[in-house]
């Protein structure tokens, strides 16, 4: 990276926002240097509504205590769309989060934001990536109406586009740094419900486990979602979780990945640029992943963020970081995704 084109060093380091699906993951995140930990309740009010995952009131209270003792903040994701007839459930989740003393809630639905802003004016609001706000004007809409303090950018913008957004909004901008790569605009994908009846927007999960079938055939391992064949894996292939946008399908006789290969997003090499343009926080994906994953990613990104903040111009991605991240990535490739324009 050419030092001459970089603007002045940022006054504040970027925050590291790490996932926690379980209390041990929360501890792993806090112990390894997360600034913020985000998590969800055990129901469809969050977009990682999977069996056995997430927090009840007691484990959340303990988690908040633990994080606060060590100087970290806890953000609760209430980032699904309240479904007709069950508004009270989402409303109650906002109230619970507020009464437990979380540091912010991450919300997608405009109606729920309106409620939270009115009922809990002191509660800090973040706009979820599921809110699909892809321009500064959309983000400013949520700022003007509900006073959101931070917005998570959907993984669709190039670095240049993200930079323009940041320059034109008073809202802190959080971007995805690492993890499973969303191909579709978050909050705008119904592929999962088309095959299974459940999607992130409606039920808080993509490709629900109960709709997945693995079948070992003589020649291949098959994965199906809601009966739809997503992929067939030969002996040498590496199977991935059967989400539709990672499937192999046939278009005009060509069998390939029409949407995306199983890859992970990894933006370590962009850190100096992201810091220079004023990104407030870097988000790590993976509330459904294990404490080992959280520990590894948090440790690597803490080190990288500190190194970048100390000396942006001399920042180099260490091979050891990439090795550690490759060891826990889905698929064997990493990509810059939409940050790098030719990906589109």
């Amino acid at each position: 990276m050419n030092a001459a084109v970089l603007p002045q060093p940022a006054a504040r380091p970027m925050k590291l926002v790490c996932p926690a699906g379980t209390p041990p993951a929360l501890k792993a995140a806090v112990d390894n240097g997360a600034d913020d930990v985000y998590l969800g309740f055990k129901d469809e009010t969050n977009a990682r509504n999977f069996a056995g995952l997430n927090f009840d009131d007691r484990s959340l209270r303990e988690g908040i205590d633990y994080a606060h003792r060590k100087g970290a903040q806890v953000l609760v994701a209430l980032n699904t769309y309240p479904q007709p007839g069950s508004w009270r459930k989402w409303q109650a989740a906002v109230n619970r989060a507020a009464s437990l003393g979380v540091d912010a809630i991450i919300v997608a639905d405009a109606g729920l934001l309106a409620y939270a802003a009115k009922a809990h004016p002191q509660l800090r609001l973040h706009l979820s990536v599921q809110g699909s706000a892809t321009s500064h004007e959309a983000i400013n809409f949520y700022h003007e109406r509900f006073g959101i303090k931070r917005a998570v950018l959907p993984r669709v913008l190039s670095v240049e586009q993200a930079e323009k957004v940041i320059a034109r909004t008073p809202v802190e901008i959080e971007v995805f740094g690492f993890g499973s790569l969303s191909i579709m605009v978050e909050g705008r994908c119904a592929l999962s419900s088309y095959a299974t009846g459940e999607s992130p927007n409606t039920h808080g999960g993509c490709s629900p486990a109960k709709s997945i079938r693995w079948q070992q055939r003589p020649d291949a391992l098959e994965s199906r979602l809601g009966g739809v064949l997503i992929d067939r894996f030969g002996a040498e292939d590496h199977p991935g979780y059967p989400t539709l946008c990672r499937g192999r399908f046939v278009v005009n006789g060509d069998t390939y990945y029409p949407f995306e290969e199983p890859t992970s997003l990894n933006t370590l090499e962009l850190l100096p640029r992201l810091q220079a343009m004023g990104v407030a926080a870097i988000k790590i994906e993976g509330r459904q992943r294990s404490p080992v994953y959280v520990e590894t990613v948090t440790r690597v990104w803490r080190e990288a963020l500190d190194a970048c903040f100390r000396d942006r111009e001399r920042f180099r991605v260490k091979p050891a970081w990439q090795d550690a991240l490759a060891g826990i990535s889905e698929g064997h490739q990493c990509t810059l995704g939409a940050y790098h324009r030719p990906w589109k």
């Binding site: 699906g21 379980t22 109960k210 997945i212 079938r213």
Partner: peptide
């Protein structure tokens, strides 16, 4: 798969 995830997530807890 659903029970597998439940077991995995519970063990993680």
């Amino acid at each position: 798969t659903e029970i597998a995830l439940l077991v995995k997530n519970t063990l993680d807890t």
